[in-house]
């Protein structure tokens, strides 16, 4: 009898607040090797929407399929007053910050992901609203490759990924 009641007690303890879910750690993989070209290319570019006068970020993958190491030096854009290469980093006490970086190495045969919580291009003090659905040109300047012009859409990527049917 006692035994049954003890197990009942234990059961209550376990079920009282539902099951504890371990937090999923999303691991960052800065340089995944996936050779898709024999050239240096920018793929999966996107810009986060933001209002005139504020800042936003441009994300993409830099795919270096060549056999030469390269470096992304600067980025140019007409939509912002200032454009900088930035990285987000973890500071003391779990705080998050970001800072400018001078050049990002894009090693041969590798892909460098510029993505949320990591490297990004800061578009500072937007000259006008940058809205979902629009597209803008950006120019990326590399040490060896020279300049690459690309067009990137404006989207809130995470929302789209997680909420498949989200409408705008």
């Amino acid at each position: 009898m006692k035994r049954i009641l003890i197990s009942v007690l234990a059961l209550f303890l376990i079920t009282a607040c539902g099951t504890e879910k371990k937090e999923e750690m999303k691991t960052e993989a800065p340089a995944a090797i996936e050779q898709t070209s024999t050239n240096l290319e920018i793929t999966n570019g996107w810009i986060r929407p933001s209002a005139k006068g504020t800042n936003t970020a441009f994300f993409f993958d830099a795919v270096n399929g060549t056999d030469m190491d390269d470096t992304l030096l600067t980025v140019e854009s007409d939509i912002a007053e200032v454009v900088q290469v930035h990285e987000t980093y973890q500071a003391d006490k779990g705080m998050m910050g970001m800072r400018e970086v001078k050049g990002v190495a894009i090693p041969k045969d590798s892909t460098v992901n510029f993505k949320p919580r990591g490297l990004h291009i800061m578009l500072i003090k937007l000259k006008h609203d940058v809205k979902t659905g629009e597209e803008y040109k950006l120019k990326l300047n590399f040490a060896k490759k020279g300049s690459l012009e690309i067009t990137a859409p404006v989207k809130d990527m995470l929302t789209k990924q997680t909420m498949g049917e989200h409408k705008h």
Binding site: R48, T88, M98, R117, H120, M122
Partner: peptide
């Protein structure tokens, strides 16, 4: 709001 990366997430 001037936060481009963490706060939007």
């Amino acid at each position: 709001t001037n936060c481009p990366d963490i706060c939007p997430l």
